[in-house]
Design a protein around this nucleic acid. Structure first.
Lengths: 299, 299
DNA sequence: TCAATAGTGTCTATTAGACAGTATACC
DNA sequence: GGTATACTGTCTAATAGACACTATTGA
């Protein structure tokens, strides 16, 4: 519908205008994507009767160059001019994992002026959820050291303070990331203003590069929120699973215990029972379920 | 905690590395912010007894140059290197409105390669909510023609189709934007994949510049979602309001009628009654309420 | 046998939806 | 008085939380 013969104030047609357009007269920020790749893994359990505990893991990459040399960062990369933002995210994801059909979602775009000491860099964060059983992280690709870290989310402090037109709510959250060899942490202050808008600020960061601690806190917030009303959790599950395993995944993301009876009622319509069972469990076997792909939240 | 004496593989310290860093060796996309400024206004009502209807409005700007010359676009601007993303959004917002303390929230960053015919432009969209009574849109600033458009959101079609691993849900949504003089529209196809990820695609766009139709559809989605569990609606209300007015705001955003009794129960804890009443209404006066600034959703 | 998990039944409290019914100014 | 809105009471259905109780395996 755009009419090519319309002329602007300089008397140019659109064709002429576009030909003369110079995108580089102003200095531009650089743009990156950073991936938050989550999975859930079983921890070793020595007692043959007990079920293994599940933990939430995130994939981090050890920085091999300045800045933050030796610190751990989210896998990421610069966005090229010939690829879309989503394509850039997929490219980064493929560089780290061997799977193609991975759940991916854009989270937030971080634009503080000083967030990267090299130059002005704005970063769009994406979250990916992968099923650990079908996953193989590409080890040592382009000399990178990629490792899974156990994620812990601790609410350290909650504050409510009177302000001009209402109350300001502040949370101090600690993110702990653990490995066999490393323990990283970040403290993030989350401020909720009277109008409902939210700000995040890094108070302290140990071993985590850039402002990536904020990214992780934000992602967990989103995970916790979306798991309640979407099928998101099933992206972390294998083809067949027990309801207890599914409940454990919910619990490890939400950071609290759930009651089995209520949980089973709630997710009943999202799963289909098979006639297979777990074996050699040291206790009563458990029925295996699969995702009910026809499920959809009612609106 | 970053140690300046660590050297990278080229033997450079961080200082030396940063000195030699050239951010411009690769071509970069440009970055803009686009603002979705919403308000709710009363429509004229000739019957003295009847309450005026409320409508959701969005502020658009008539493009004065190529591309999309003469079409209507969201107010926006390029992000400069010395300002943060939020600062850029505030700058754009201040250019259009006279208010300082406006609710603003980042929505989504749009990164399709061909979304701007000038050059590669990635756009972060922000939503702002303003109370119509305290608002004055800056008219004719830098020769811009800024106007309010009534927003309508119509679900035209819903489809569920079997796919490889589950079902694909498709929605066809029509956005209609109306003015005394103009009527614009866009059709957006929203695809929800089996894993829960969502894609948006513009099918048709009449009078709306760029891919801004998608931005508007996304923003309304977010509005509808967040109004259910946050205090967001009160950013659209004046200091004092009746519960019927508040309900009308909820209805115009949600696009459906609500039952008064249930609505009042639901928002009871979010408001404080005053001892003032409406007057000259042609019917029973209504008690005026104000926002309960101590309200917070329980977690 | 028993440790540990699997799975169900049911009571209670809370909340959303529906709708009838009463109240009240202003023309 | 009549119109249009303001506001409340209550029945019902659906849902979440709590918890007790039964079931079942492998060592």
């Amino acid at each position: 519908m755009r009419n090519e013969v319309i002329r602007n104030k300089q008397g140019l047609t659109e064709k002429e205008f576009l030909k003369g357009y110079d995108a580089d007269i102003y200095k531009k920020p650089s743009l990156t994507v950073d991936m938050l790749i989550f999975t859930v893994m079983d921890e070793e359990e020595e007692n043959y009767r007990k079920l293994p505990e599940k933990t939430l893991k995130i994939l981090l990459v050890k920085r091999g160059d300045h800045p933050y040399l030796g610190k751990w960062a989210l896998p990421g990369g610069f966005v090229a001019v010939e690829e879309s933002l989503d394509e850039a995210a997929f490219r980064v994801l493929r560089a780290e994992t061997n799977i193609d059909d991975i759940y991916m979602e854009q989270l937030y775009t971080w634009g503080d002026v000083d967030r990267d000491p090299r130059t002005r860099v704005i970063s769009s964060s994406y979250m990916a959820l992968v099923d650990n059983s079908s996953l193989k992280v590409k080890a040592g690709n382009d000399e990178e050291d990629a490792r899974w870290f156990e994620v812990q989310y601790n609410l350290l402090e909650e504050k409510k303070a009177a302000a001009e037109r209402g109350y300001i709510y502040e949370q101090l959250v600690e993110i702990k990331l653990r490995n066999e060899s490393d323990e990283l942490s970040a403290r993030i202050k989350i401020t909720e203003n009277p109008d409902g808008s939210v700000c995040r600020e890094i108070i302290e960061s140990e071993g985590i590069a850039f402002d990536h601690g904020k990214f992780i806190q934000y992602a967990i917030d989103r995970l916790r929120n979306k798991i309640e009303y979407t099928n998101l959790a099933f992206n972390l599950m294998p083809e067949l699973f027990t309801l207890t395993e599914l409940q454990q995944v919910y619990e490890v993301i939400l950071g609290r215990e759930l009651l089995a009876a209520a949980f089973r009622r709630k997710i009943a319509s999202m799963v289909i029972e098979t006639n297979q069972f777990t074996k050699d469990a040291g206790h009563r076997p458990s029925k295996l379920f699969k995702y009910n792909s026809a499920w959809r939240r009612d609106i």
